[in-house]
Amino acid sequence: MFYQNKTYKINTDNPWQCMDQETIILSPKSNKAHELNKAGTYLWNHMQENNTPSLNELTELLSVKFNINGIEAKTDTELFLKSLIEQQILVESDS
């Protein structure tokens, strides 16, 4: 995942599961549980299947799937990624 000039990967130390188009992600270190909505789950599943999607790729997917314009999709995707990075669900990758 390439974002803001850095490469990120999913932190494999966080257990997760999807159910009814929602996702729960646990952060054992911070002892927290996070929940993704339908759109977040859609992006999360794509990120699980594709290790290095770009911001543009995710934005495009979101825009098409939920029929929203590109600007709104980009804003939402950035907020989503920022949140995952803050919660250390996405962590910086060496590669």
Partner: peptide, 18 residues
């Protein structure tokens, strides 16, 4: 005890019901 008990409880209930 996880801090977000509301989320975990929701998921427990959801899994049981579904």
């Amino acid at each position: 005890t996880p801090q977000n008990l509301d989320i975990l409880n929701k998921w427990r209930l959801k899994s049981s019901a579904s």
